[in-house]
Design a protein around this nucleic acid. Structure first.
Length: 254
DNA sequence: ATGGCTTGAGTGTCAAGA
């Protein structure tokens, strides 16, 4: 099974890019973040024409998540309990014997901002959701845009980013608590060196100099990790005409 | 130090992203 996650920064603006990428990689499960549309605006027909089902949880203008899959998804749960005011950011479903939590973590804007405090509370709620899912599903994947780096290896310029948003110690500790119940950062099981990122700033043309951050992750339970053969960041998808600012991350499971 | 760029909303210009 090929499991992928991608912050597409608007599914409607990105549909040509996403369609071409699906045809090239043919993932079994593709979790999308920042779809930025109401469920009735989601380009369902185009996705179904590629041979995929779509579970969607969106809202107007902002946020929005979706799980595309070749096999039907079951036991779908929309949202994160108690965090409804933060928008449409979590979609949980079972596909092919794998329980998948697709998450778009609150950005937080700036350390100390009210949205930063919301981010930390929101991540605590995600950690509770993950614990509950793990209690019921041995094969579990938590994927998505976490808007947090694990450590300075995930940062192109750790001095510039020191204790800044996406890199602060409280955010990293909150991410650690999402991992705590026996999950692992699957990418780091296969790639030990730095310089591998999933997001590059449009404004500074960060992709040109690989000035990026690794903030999109595939977290796997022990049972899922045993079946994981490799994890890849597809930087090709960040190139070309009108890309998203994020690249997809793909994990291959037996 | 600030803005750089992109999208959605909606038609002038802001909010939000990370």
């Amino acid at each position: 099974m090929l499991l992928a996650t991608w912050n597409v920064n608007s599914i409607r603006a990105r549909l040509p890019k996403v369609s071409a990428w699906i045809e090239r990689r043919r993932p079994d499960v593709l979790c999308l973040q920042e779809t930025k549309c109401l469920d009735e605006q989601f380009p369902r027909a185009e996705i179904e024409a590629l041979g995929y089902r779509a579970e969607v949880f969106g809202q107007k203008t902002y946020n929005g998540v979706a799980i595309l899959s070749r096999e039907p998804a079951s036991d779908v749960v929309r949202g994160l309990a108690g965090m409804e005011e933060a928008g449409a950011r979590v979609l949980t479903a079972t596909v092919g014997g794998l329980r998948v939590v697709n998450a778009y973590v609150v950005n937080g804007q700036e350390v100390g901002h009210a949205k930063y405090e919301l981010k930390l509370r929101w991540m605590a709620a995600l950690a509770a959701h993950v614990r509950a899912q793990l209690a019921a599903h041995e094969r579990l994947a938590i994927v998505g845009d976490f808007n947090v780096t694990f450590d300075d290896l995930d940062v192109y310029d750790p001095v510039e980013w020191r204790e800044q948003i996406l890199c602060s110690t409280p955010e990293r500790e909150a991410l650690g608590r999402v991992l705590a119940p026996g999950l692992a950062d699957s990418f780091r099981r296969f790639t030990k060196e730095g310089g591998h990122y999933t997001w590059w700033d449009f404004r500074t043309r960060g992709f040109l100099g690989n000035r990026g951050l690794r903030i999109d992750h595939v977290l796997l339970s022990e049972a899922a990790l045993r079946d994981c053969e490799g994890v890849e960041i597809d930087v090709e998808a960040r190139k070309g005409e009108a890309p998203s600012d994020h690249a997809p991350v793909l994990a291959r499971l037996r």
